[in-house]
């Protein structure tokens, strides 16, 4: 394996990189379309135009949907973090055969196909009068996001020595004090990544939202969905480009940050 690179492996490697480029491909499609001078979806031939960016940035509908999605994402994430973190701590401390089964059940909203979740929410929300309301969308998104918080927080808890909790209780700390002063400070990373995952789940959610929201609660994914289905508007490409740019920005910050730490720990 060291140094001896056969021709066959070169071909395998080349094919693997071709496949990896296939994976990265969609990143590069939206940007050129967003610069087309035409009024329909097309690649610019020769001249480019920033007109669709202007249209996007001055569109109340698009901007309002971004604000709406951010708000729904933030509240859903907060709810999921509170409920999911406390549940993860409970599961961790009790940890019996019963909780192993509960864990599997708690992951259900993540594993069950979204179309089935959508039907369930649509049915119940209809009976409760919560369709097309912020409350309904936020509750549904919170439920979908909870498994992600339970998973990330549980991963943090797995590295936490359970005797810490016993020591705190043994020395007379109440459960509230134990949780807030001993456990939570030790699992901050898990809670934070759970919050981010929960936000992304809500921010990206489309299938359930299509069912339970109509006109009053148009989220950003809903705007994109409508834009693609109507198939007329390059403004969607602007939105897609901006979303890809934000993702790249966040990921490169993430990639750069640990690199900064490395020299310190080495030298």
């Amino acid at each position: 394996m060291e140094g001896r690179v056969s021709l066959e492996f070169r071909i395998v490697l080349l094919a693997a990189w071709a496949a990896l480029c296939f994976l990265a491909f969609p990143i590069f499609v939206a940007a050129p379309v967003s610069l087309t001078p035409e009024r329909f979806l097309s690649f610019p031939k020769g001249e480019i135009s920033w007109g669709h960016y202007e249209a996007f940035l001055t569109s109340d509908r698009w901007l309002a949907s971004i604000g709406r999605s951010a708000l729904i994402g933030a509240i859903s994430s907060a709810v999921a973090v509170i409920v999911g973190t406390t549940a993860a701590i409970g599961l961790w401390r009790i940890s019996s055969r019963a909780t192993e089964y509960l864990r599997a059940m708690i992951l259900a909203p993540m594993i069950i196909p979204p179309i089935i979740s959508a039907l369930a929410f649509y049915r119940l929300w209809g009976q409760l009068g919560w369709l097309d309301s912020y409350f309904g969308v936020i509750l549904a998104h919170s439920i979908l996001a909870m498994p992600y918080v339970v998973i990330t927080v549980s991963a943090s808890l797995a590295n936490l020595d359970m005797r810490l909790e016993q020591a705190a209780r043994g020395m007379g700390a109440s459960m509230w004090q134990t949780v807030t002063r001993v456990i939570i400070p030790n699992i901050k990373v898990g809670i934070a990544s759970g919050a981010i995952f929960a936000f992304i789940v809500s921010w990206d959610e489309i299938v359930v939202t299509l069912f339970i929201a109509r006109r009053a609660v148009i989220t950003l994914p809903r705007m994109i969905w409508d834009g693609i289905r109507d198939n007329v508007d390059p403004t969607v490409a602007v939105c897609a480009t901006l979303l890809v740019l934000i993702t790249i920005l966040v990921l490169s910050i993430q990639l750069i940050l640990p690199n900064r730490k490395l020299p310190k720990s080495n030298g």
Partner: peptide, 21 residues
């Protein structure tokens, strides 16, 4: 007490997720 802090999630899932499914 730990069953108590686990219960909100279980109740929410049971009422608003598993019941309608």
């Amino acid at each position: 007490p730990y069953w108590a802090i686990l219960s909100p999630l279980l109740i929410i899932l049971a009422m608003f997720y598993f019941a309608p499914i």
